[in-house]
Nucleic acid binder design. Structure first.
Lengths: 329, 329
DNA sequence: CTCCATAATGTTTGCGCAAACATTATGGAC
DNA sequence: GTCCATAATGTTTGCGCAAACATTATGGAG
């Protein structure tokens, strides 16, 4: 492995001069600088962030943990945003997958500067470790009581409210809601928004309007459709907790000869990339996923640089995007 | 930051004894070991892989570069496989995104032990750097002339052949093919399989049977449908270069009142998770994506351990999965 | 009770880098 | 030419760890 000393030898200087050239610190004569740069080029030298990290106690790397399924627009947008934030500040991402808990070990060993989690609750054990090791941490799309963890999420309550109110304004009264995965905080907040909207318009939420879904997937949406099709009366509208579920539902209903939006209105959530490119363009709630990813990375890096952010919870605004899948009953 | 010496002080031993306990090397009296372990627990000590790496010249980390869109089953399966291989050998993944070239710098700086690329061609500059730095590297789903890079991919030629022959056997003669992104090696190989099958059955491949697609997406499939619907005669079958394209095509054709498989047969590629869960379950070619991811990680780690794999190119078998979207014309 | 093999523990060293401090050039004022 | 401020470069040190080597216990054979 080529190190500073090898470069120094070739350039006929001391290794600290090489260090100065690389970090642009201190004074180096132009001709010396050039000699050093040439030597670096010739040897293909790359400064080792390991040695540097040993000094500075920072390796410019953020640990990220992924759980669950990645194969949807949501995760793609989120990762894109996070990566953009990291790149801006020259940070790298150290990635692990897996649903087991107690997975913080590799991050601590590699001395990452911070941790970023999303779509997951932190176990109390994890929180304990994070606090004990005093490592900056942000959590996206969930909440957590610990003061050391910053939480960023969008205003799902408002989103659920807007979606439901939109349907009410169109004249719907029998509005169903796919009640999302129970372990998902966003889903719970959307549900709350739905309830609030219904109640504020004096609409009763009968039990048969609440359709449980186990996860955010097309299959779950199709399952809901099968369930609905067995009834003698359909709701006139369904507020789906995610676009994927709406797609599955819409698809399965169409097979059964039920038209959207003529027979039933459907509204999704996330405004994912494909909403506009399907049979019936889906009314949805815009969820600033990429922005939250970006802001999450930036917040974390602020933490790392000891600039504690002003607020520990940051809520991002959402917006209703009306397309073709909703109409008056 | 807590280090070995802190633990040693608390346990009233020398720090090398701590090292021995951690690495299970050499002899340590049971009572001493316990004292050390207690001290580790009490201080929340995590051995730093940085210091270790400085010695051993290995940080147990693999660099991975992602380009393009992640939001499909393919990438999910691949990542799952790669992560599984890494976890087995206690390696971590250092991740970067982005389509720019010349992005190897952060990997070299962080002294990753190896590199893994997929769905991308390596530029000659990248190959030069990889060879110069003598860093183990595997490439998934593409090929590269460099001897230092191992390539793993599935037998796309066979896949294209099987798909096309299946349609021919059903009695189709006017079989179209969506000619995949031109910069994608798999797509080129599938195209070749298609051509071979057509020719070996003495079927001519008219120009209007080749439908270019810019990328693997549902929109691209819908675009193909729009193009086809303007013609006075449809092909009797389409071999799509990916499931996503098949989904988009099928969806758009259905809107236009064209039935699958009665009016037109459609076959996809990848056998992605959703193939079985759509309106018309899609005949597809099983692509051992997860397996290749896993094998890729394992091959790379073999390289790293200086056990050069026997072959530099490894080709994985594929399989035709017949469902409902194909039938006799 | 001595001896000594081996178990148990300790000391020194160097990995690549940069901070802190130390030294040597350079060139302008007089 | 002399002086000296400052530019330019060099030396020492320590970050956390483990290999290599060094030392000190321990306990069983005789």
């Amino acid at each position: 492995m080529v190190n500073q000393s090898d470069v120094a030898r070739l350039a006929n200087v001391s290794f600290i001069t090489v260090s100065r050239v690389i970090n642009n610190k201190g004074n180096v004569k132009e001709v010396t600088r050039k000699r050093v740069l040439d030597a670096i080029e010739e040897l293909g030298y790359h400064p080792s962030s390991l040695g540097r990290a040993l000094n500075s106690n920072s390796i410019n790397t953020i640990g990220m943990h992924l759980r669950g399924n990645l194969s949807n627009d949501f995760v793609h947008s989120l990762l894109t945003g996070i990566e953009a934030g990291c790149k801006q500040h020259n940070y790298s991402l150290l990635l692990h997958f897996g649903d087991e808990s107690n997975t913080l070990q590799p991050y601590f060993e590699r001395k990452v500067d911070g941790l970023i989690f999303f779509l997951t609750e932190l176990t109390t054990e994890e929180i304990r470790l994070i606090e004990k090791n005093d490592i900056p941490c942000v959590l996206l799309w969930d909440q957590c009581e610990s003061k050391v963890v910053s939480c960023l999420f969008s205003d799902d309550v408002k989103g659920g409210f807007l979606a439901t109110e939109h349907l009410i304004t169109l004249g719907h009264t029998r509005i169903a809601h796919t009640v999302g995965p129970t372990d998902n905080a966003s889903a719970r907040r959307r549900h709350q928004g739905y309830i609030t909207a219904m109640q504020s318009h004096k609409l009763t939420v009968a039990d048969d309007l609440l359709l449980p879904v186990p996860h955010f997937s097309q299959e779950a949406g199709r399952q809901v459709a099968r369930e609905l099709l067995q009834r003698h009366q359909l709701p006139s509208a369904v507020f789906c907790v995610s676009d994927l579920i709406a797609f599955g539902l819409m698809d399965a209903l169409r097979e059964a000869g039920i038209r959207v939006p003529e027979d039933i209105s459907i509204i999704g959530y996330d405004n994912s990339h494909t909403t506009a490119h399907v049979y019936c363009p889906l009314t949805s709630v815009y969820n600033p996923v990429k922005e939250i990813g970006h802001a999450g990375a930036e917040t974390l890096i602020q933490h790392i640089h000891n600039e504690p952010p002003t607020e520990s919870n940051r809520i991002f605004d959402v917006e209703l995007i009306v397309r073709k899948s909703t109409a008056s009953p």
